[in-house]
Structure formats: structure tokens, C-alpha cells
């Protein structure tokens, strides 16, 4: 879930560019009309992007470095051991606590009206934040990679801002702006609008915290892709909208989806910023993570972990979706098909 630093992504971009001539441009570039073509190098995951070009260039000549087997096995064992310790164990602990009082109580904890309200609010929040960030991310990535204008670097830095500041500060800024004693608060209250300590505040905080995900996913990809296909479309007489919907969008769709998956996971799991602006009104402004905290504070440990297991389920689904996307993006029209 953690974002890759922007610098790394840009470097990857350079690497991809350099590799292109080696691999042979003719085989890499599918005809512009074939939408899936761009997906070839485009699972969006920087990790793969780093791996892929290296593999590609080293394929013709045999690799220069072949590590001894014990190093490979040792590192794999270390990674797996670490994973088991820091991921497997906590997951097992959550599940065992959740079911510690039996499956009936587990279900009862999820069916409690306040738990249902929290689930509803979390879904609503993600339902607003994710499409909004899809629109914003596309617009920002498109504008940053396809146009030249003053203030572009500033825009890039601003997109990264939510990664840079603590979510708690994001929450406080919203309180400062929209709170009853804030900058806009008195005017809003006078007009009957409640933002802070109500659902709009929760949504705003979530949107703020999640907005870099899609843009950050798309920018390196669009940069790597260059503008050739779009220029070709232009010379063929396509309008701006046609270029966007028939060339750019199909090319970026896997990156976009991947960004949305990450964005959604964060939107549903956000705690800090939401905690500051929610007001913790039970059954009204509590999201799933806040509800978990409340239950835990009430010594209702089984119920707390039962609700927490919902978030765990979300994490598993996110992982599965990510895997599926990478697999589809990798399998579809990838010129050097064998991945994983």
C-alpha cells in the first residue's frame, strides 16, 4: 500500500526508454489501434517495471551475475520468514480473537446496527472518494505529462502533499477550515451546512488522504509511454476527446485500475484524518476503523476483532485484485509474455 517515491518512478521511466531500442521497437510497439498494447509494460507496479526491463535486456546474452543457490534460497527464506512474522502472525491473531467466542457471536458483532452503520459509511465514503480521485488522477496525470505550462512542478509537489503530511494534520486542517470557529465554518453553519463532525467531513478527509494514489500511478506510465500514439491519432484527424477515449484511456486502464484498487483500500482503512473530523458519533459518523477502536475501548475484544477482520478481508480482496490486474496486464499482448 505504501507509495513508491516519485523519484524512483521517474528513474524507472528513463530505464524503460533506454531499453526500448535494445528490445527492438518494432516488436514492442503494437499498432496504436490495439488498446491492450500499452498494457504490455504496464502493470503499473514499479516493482515489476524495474524488473521487466532488466530481464528484457539480459535475455539475449546470459546474465552476467548468477548468484549461488544458497544466497537465493537464504534470501527467499528470510523474506518468507519476515512475511510470516509480520503479516501471517498478526492475521492469525486477528482471526483467532475474532472467533474466540464462536461464529455466532462473530456474526452478531457484524450484524449490530452500529457496525452496519459503520460499514455503510465506509462504503459510502469509498464510493465517493474513489471515483473523485479517478477523475482527479486522470486529469492531473494527463495535464502533467501532456502539456507544458508554468506551475507544473508545483502541481506535482502538491499531488504528493498528502503522502508527505501526517493524516492527523489533514484532519486538523479540515477542522480549521470548516469547523464552527474556522475560516469558512461560521458561513457554512449559517447556511445549514455541516461539514466537520458529519459525513461530508469524513468524505473530505478521505479524499484528501487518498488523492495521490491514482495520479501517482498514472504519471510515470504516461511519461514512459510518450506521445507518439496520440500524435499519430492526431495526424489521422482524431479530436482531443477521441484521442483521450480511444488511445490514452485504453492504454492506461490497467494502471488506472491498479491505482483505484490502492486508493480504495486506503479510503476504507483510513484512521487518523477521519478520527479527527468524525466526532465519533456512534451509528452516524463512525467508519469501520473507528468502530473497531470503540469496541476495543469497551473491552469488547471479540467484537472489535470481528469487525477488524472485515478490514482484513478487504486487504485480501485488494491483494487478489492487484494480482489479477497484474496477471491480466502481463498476459494480454505482452510481447515477452512469460511473467511470474
Amino acid at each position: 500500500m505504501d507509495p513508491r517515491p516519485g523519484g524512483g518512478a521517474v528513474k524507472v521511466t528513463g530505464a524503460v526508454r533506454e531499453q526500448l531500442p535494445v528490445a527492438g521497437p518494432a516488436s514492442v510497439r503494437p499498432p496504436p489501434g490495439d488498446g491492450a498494447g500499452g498494457g504490455a509494460r504496464a502493470p503499473g507496479a514499479a516493482g515489476e517495471a524495474v524488473g521487466a526491463p532488466a530481464e528484457r535486456s539480459s535475455r539475449p546474452r546470459r546474465p552476467a551475475t548468477e548468484d549461488p543457490a544458497w544466497i537465493r534460497r537464504g534470501l527467499t527464506a528470510l523474506a518468507l520468514g519476515f512475511l510470516a512474522l509480520f503479516v501471517g502472525l498478526p492475521v492469525a491473531a486477528v482471526l483467532s480473537e475474532a472467533f474466540s467466542k464462536g461464529a455466532a457471536l462473530y456474526l452478531a458483532a457484524l450484524r449490530e446496527p452500529e457496525a452496519l452503520a459503520a460499514i455503510r459509511l465506509t462504503l459510502l465514503t469509498a464510493g465517493i472518494a474513489v471515483p473523485l480521485n479517478a477523475a482527479f488522477g486522470l486529469a492531473a496525470a494527463w495535464s502533467v505529462t501532456r502539456f507544458r505550462y508554468r506551475g507544473k512542478d508545483l502541481l506535482l509537489s502538491l499531488i504528493d502533499l498528502p503522502f508527505g503530511v501526517s493524516p492527523v494534520i489533514a484532519g486538523m486542517v479540515i477542522v480549521l477550515l470548516f469547523g464552527a470557529r474556522g475560516l469558512l465554518g461560521p458561513w457554512l453553519v449559517a447556511h445549514g451546512c455541516r461539514i466537520v463532525f458529519a459525513i461530508p467531513g469524513v468524505v473530505l478527509a478521505t479524499v484528501f488522504v487518498t488523492f495521490p494514489f491514482v495520479a501517482r500511478e498514472l504519471i510515470p506510465f504516461l511519461e514512459a509511454q510518450g506521445t507518439e500514439e496520440e500524435e499519430a491519432a492526431l495526424t489521422l484527424g482524431a479530436s482531443g476527446w477521441q484521442i483521450f477515449t480511444r488511445v490514452t484511456l485504453p492504454n492506461v486502464r490497467w494502471s488506472l485500475l491498479y491505482g483505484l484498487v490502492l486508493c480504495n483500500a486506503r479510503a476504507m482503512g483510513e484512521f487518523g484524518a477521519v478520527s479527527v473530523v468524525s466526532g465519533h458519533v456512534r451509528g452516524l459518523t463512525d467508519t469501520i476503523p473507528l468502530h473497531v477502536e470503540i469496541l476495543y475501548d469497551e473491552y469488547d475484544f471479540a467484537a472489535a476483532f470481528a469487525v477488524a477482520s472485515l478490514l482484513l478481508l478487504l486487504a485480501v480482496l485488494t491483494l487478489a485484485a492487484k494480482q489479477l490486474l497484474e496477471w491480466r496486464a502481463g498476459g494480454r499482448g505482452a510481447p515477452h509474455g512469460s511473467r511470474s
Binding site: 501532456r146 502539456f147 507544458r148 511519461e223 506521445t227 500524435e231
Partner: peptide, 23 residues
């Protein structure tokens, strides 16, 4: 970074940065 090699000046086509931000 990726210099826009667009033959037309920006703003000449529909979804310019300003329109997108506005949207």
C-alpha cells in the same frame, strides 16, 4: 520531463489542463 511534442499550441484542443482542472 516528457516534452510535449504536440504540434498545436496548448489550449487549442478541447481537454486542456485548465478545463480538466475545472471539471
Amino acid at each position: 520531463m516528457s516534452a510535449p511534442r504536440s504540434p498545436e499550441p496548448e489550449g487549442g484542443r478541447w481537454p486542456g489542463p485548465r478545463e480538466l482542472l475545472l471539471f
